[in-house]
Amino acid sequence: MDTVLSVVIAVLLASGVLVTVRLVRGPSTLDRAVALDALVAVVMAGIGVLTAARGIPYYLPALLVLSFLGFTGSVSIARFLALRDEAGSEDADVGDDGGGADDGEGGDGGRTAAPGSGRGRGPRLHGRGREKGSGG
């Protein structure tokens, strides 16, 4: 029991670190918004695990507050901040792709897996299945 709970907490900590990496170096504001949502979800899962491990219900209102805060933050970023920051700034877009060499260390497998992506603007890679899945 305690071993499984330790494994769960370790996995949650590792995912929090990974999400924080994207939160720090996400190229655009929207990447950071998405990472912030995921981070809030990870923290909520951690509070749920803490509640279950100790058997005390006093942290449950914090779950409600975190849910509301995550929703408000992401909607306000998407609505007001992102459109205003990057309106018509194509150069910032290109710069982000150039700075997206950080994708190169992790994304090489995906780059070779999508060999037909060389027709358009090069750094924007990846196939159609993911776009379709993310759109739905």
């Binding site: 949650l12 590792a14 995912s15 990974l18 990447d31 899962a45 997206g100 990846h126 993911r130």
Partner: peptide, 19 residues
């Protein structure tokens, strides 16, 4: 949660990261 972290680090686009 761990899969979301890995996907956020590795995927190249905003929409795929949302996925």
């Amino acid at each position: 949660c761990l899969l979301a972290g890995i996907g956020l680090v590795r995927l190249p686009d905003v929409l795929t990261r949302m996925h």
